[in-house]
């Protein structure tokens, strides 16, 4: 059976146009592609004839008579359905909010995001695996550093003592004042060290 339209396969312009004729007839080509096909059809009577025939063929197929079931179809079907039970568990009814949400998210967008969400999860796992040793190393350095311990502990002690001495319930600004006092004392200590 002849499976293609090509009357002159040597002619690359014809080949190119004919490959697109089916989609051209359906208006599925981009504006540029459609313009290219039309430009070729204007210059090539053989392809223009093919395009007309293809369009007519499609119209004839679409215009074929349609058939429907016999009159007793529904009665027969219901008689059969009476002896049948839907299988599987009944799905949980979807909440109104979930239904609205589903229609706000077009199916195509959700389908498009599905691989993206997979990639996101994969990236998250890789990042966690990569970052874990670094984080552990960071924590290890801090906990083992004698410098850090000596520098941080007195400040924290000063702060907690000053905070305990104040009463933030009576005066909300007390904690800030306490913190200011700690900073001042730390600054004084630092200045004293420099002087020595």
């Amino acid at each position: 059976m002849a499976m293609h339209l090509f009357r002159d396969p040597q002619h690359t312009g014809c080949l190119r146009a004919q490959e697109r004729l089916s989609e051209y007839v359906d208006n599925r080509l981009s504006a540029r592609q459609a313009w290219e096909v039309e430009r070729h059809l204007a210059a090539c009577p053989a392809c223009a004839q093919m395009a007309r025939e293809l369009r007519t063929t499609v119209a004839l197929v679409r215009d074929l008579p349609r058939y429907d079931t016999g009159e007793d179809f529904m009665a027969r079907l219901h008689a059969r359905l009476d002896g049948v039970e839907p299988t599987g568990a009944q799905p949980r009814p979807m909440g109104l909010l979930a239904q609205r949400w589903r229609w706000l998210w077009p199916e195509r967008l959700r389908m498009a995001l599905r691989p993206a969400s997979g990639l996101g999860i994969a990236a998250g796992v890789i990042l966690t695996l990569w970052a874990m040793p670094h984080l552990l190393r960071e924590n290890g350095n801090r906990s083992m550093s004698p410098v850090g311990t000596s520098a941080v502990t007195p400040e924290a002690l000063h702060y907690s003592v000053a905070l305990a001495a104040s009463d933030p319930f009576e005066d909300p600004a007390a904690a800030n004042l306490a913190a200011h006092a700690v900073l001042k004392s730390v600054q004084e200590e630092s200045d004293a060290k420099k002087a020595h």
Partner: peptide, 24 residues
């Protein structure tokens, strides 16, 4: 899918070509 539709239409057109003259 695109390919099958394209080839199906082309084959139909080939078969119907003798009857399509003067139509369309």
């Amino acid at each position: 899918v695109k390919s099958r539709i394209f080839h199906a239409r082309a084959a139909l057109r080939d078969r119907l070509a003798p009857y399509l003259n003067g139509m369309g």
